[in-house]
């Protein structure tokens, strides 16, 4: 049934000799314990890495020799191997290490001990399980690269949400957030407002100071306005010189107050570019989600209409959407 088993006496002796050579060459730690968890055998990998001496450990209890092991938990785990006759496992992903062993990359990685995958195998002898073989494999590399990969993925995830120039949210992420906030506001019957705004005469500014000057203005304005917002507000670059802010759980009154504050703050602030002072203004449109709005796009449309009104009325001012029923409440 079992191929590879050598029956002949000579081959048996040879196999014994060979297997001890192999176990001592392996890059895997091997530790064999009996049913009382006393150490019966180990290989040289473990001897080298644990800097312990054979004479001191053979016959001793594993928990006395490796005092770092979580005794209660590991005893229970080993008991499952003895009782059920099945292998059990412990991965670095759940426990970075069991045995405190040094690893081969102490400089390039930030972990103190070798990350390990451990396997606990039942060793059957005439039907009874009398020993457990513990295999310890070095997973430090995998652990290290997994960490690097995760960092890179987190960075990518952030980059895919951020506008490269202004470092605020990009259009795609902003719109997804609005979509979510729209659903939340509908579900929980909460207020939701939107501010859309635009830098006044931006084309003129670009012509006068060059595109680098224009970029500097976009960056500085984003910073200034960002500092006026709450954490839950979602501030994004809608396109070109147009921006938008989603204000969850905010009725139009609060949104109008914030819009006024933005308008005044921008008007008062001065941006320095190549030793020249640049003064800019913004026009803002504000809208609150109403019963009749069937989608988040309708809300954008209303805020956009209000923004055009602010532009047409002479810029540097705030207008709110005409259609909403909230205006009377706001002025009352």
């Amino acid at each position: 049934m079992n191929p590879g088993v050598l029956t002949d006496e000579i081959s048996k002796k040879f196999a014994e000799k060979l297997s001890s050579k192999i176990t001592d060459q392996l890059n895997t730690g091997i530790l064999i314990v009996d049913t009382e968890f006393n150490i019966v055998m180990w290989n040289s990998y473990l001897q080298v890495h644990s800097t312990k001496v054979s004479n001191d450990i053979i016959g001793k209890n594993i928990f006395d020799i490796f005092s770092e092991l979580p005794q209660r938990w590991l005893s229970r785990k080993l008991a499952s191997v003895l009782q059920l006759g099945t292998p059990n496992f412990c991965s670095w992903e759940q426990r970075r290490h069991l045995f405190e062993l040094p690893h081969t990359r102490p400089i390039t990685t930030d972990c103190e001990f070798m990350a390990q995958n451990c396997t606990f195998l039942p060793m059957q002898d005439d039907g009874d399980i009398e020993h457990i073989c513990i295999l310890i494999e070095d997973a430090t590399d995998v652990c290290h690269y997994q960490g690097q990969l995760q960092k890179a993925l987190d960075k990518l995830a952030l980059m895919s949400r951020i506008d490269g120039l202004t470092q605020i949210y990009n259009r795609k992420h902003w719109q997804e957030s609005l979509e979510q906030e729209f659903a939340k506001a509908r579900r929980h019957e909460k207020a939701l407002s939107l501010i859309m705004f635009d830098l006044d005469n931006f084309k003129h500014l670009n012509d006068h100071y060059g595109h680098q000057g224009g970029d500097e203005v976009l960056i500085e304005i984003s910073k200034t306005i960002g500092s006026l917002l709450r954490v839950e507000d979602v501030f994004g670059r809608y396109g070109g010189e147009e921006f938008a802010i989603v204000l969850p759980e905010t009725p139009i009154k609060g949104a109008l107050e914030l819009a006024e504050r933005i308008c005044q703050t921008v008007e008062k602030s001065t941006i320095t570019f190549k030793d020249k002072d640049i003064n800019v203004t913004v026009s803002l449109g504000v809208a609150q989600l109403s019963e009749s709005d069937t989608s988040f796009e309708t809300l954008i449309m209303h805020a956009d209409d209000a923004l055009y009104l602010a532009k047409n009325n002479g810029r540097n001012q705030v207008c709110s959407a005409k259609t909403t029923e909230f205006l009377q409440q706001a002025s009352a």
Partner: peptide, 12 residues
């Protein structure tokens, strides 16, 4: 951890 519990019972 919870993850470890799930893995443990599954393996068993």
């Amino acid at each position: 951890s919870k993850d470890e519990q799930l893995i443990d019972i599954s393996s068993i």
